[in-house]
Amino acid sequence: MNILLRHRIILPVVSLAVLLAATFYMQPRAMSYFGLNLLFNLAVPIALATIAQMMIIMVNDIDLSLGTFVSLAACVTATFLNDAPILGLAILLALILSYALLGAMIHAFELPAIVVTLGMSFVWGGLALFILPLPGGVSPGWLRALMTVKPPFAPMAVVAPIIIAAVTHLLIVRSGIGTVLRGVGGNARSVQRAGWPVIWLKALAYGLAGLFGVLAGMALVGLTTSADANIALRYTLLSIAGVILGGGEFTGGKVSPAGAVIGALTLTLAASFLSFMRLSPDWQIGAQGAILILVLTARLIFSRKGAGT
């Protein structure tokens, strides 16, 4: 099991390294403190959103509302959290709790998560438009300062993903509750037989997803300085792709937090790389898809060989 877990992380690391080398070759200017920061700082909210998606995929579900949820969290951050911090914090907390409640409901009524979250995406999107009908709002000063802080040695855009990966690795892979949570995705029935209340575990997984979704929205506002009700719509699909690229699988329980963070970085880098190549925008989405398929194919070959020996 330990070897498999290590196998899982090798491929994402290699893909990121290859892409990074190619980017540095094409744009040597990126090979600096300043360059790395520009290249990766928008990957920080994507990494957080990918972790959120990973929590859901971990328990065998999928979240199609994440992009609108992150947008909503961004709108709350740029308005309430800035004008009335207590109220803003309460709203964000309520958002996390509603995510946990959603998880419990999906389990209790045996609802398909894909339908529930698709429905919720319209609710989150509507609320975001209600809070911020026109683009605007202001990032709280402390958040802006946090996102633009310049730590020694490595830029924030590199330090933050490492911290995110380390914390979630401890939480999901190392801790006891993390093991149980992965067990829910792997085999919910045996977890239940072992005496764990699955409904609470699902609520916890969804709550964690809500927490990281809110953090993603806050990080995004810290970078953009203001919000827009449609700011993070892309994150739904990016986060799913990031999880899979990072070695996660749709058959639950098989996830890798560090891999998910690396997957998010790889996706962000792929877009920049294609832009440096001066590829026509009509081809960029296709090329992004091609990179994704390439990595997945490599993984398939890799795992087949692993199974063969």
């Binding site: 520009l38 928008l42 953009t224 449609n230 892309r234 877009a271 920049s272 440096f276």
Partner: peptide, 19 residues
């Protein structure tokens, strides 16, 4: 940008700075 999204364009601007 390949998609009409603010986050895409923000990344595009950052790439232009790098270029």
């Amino acid at each position: 940008t390949s998609e009409n999204q603010a986050t895409e364009q923000a990344a595009q601007i950052q790439n232009m700075i790098l270029q």
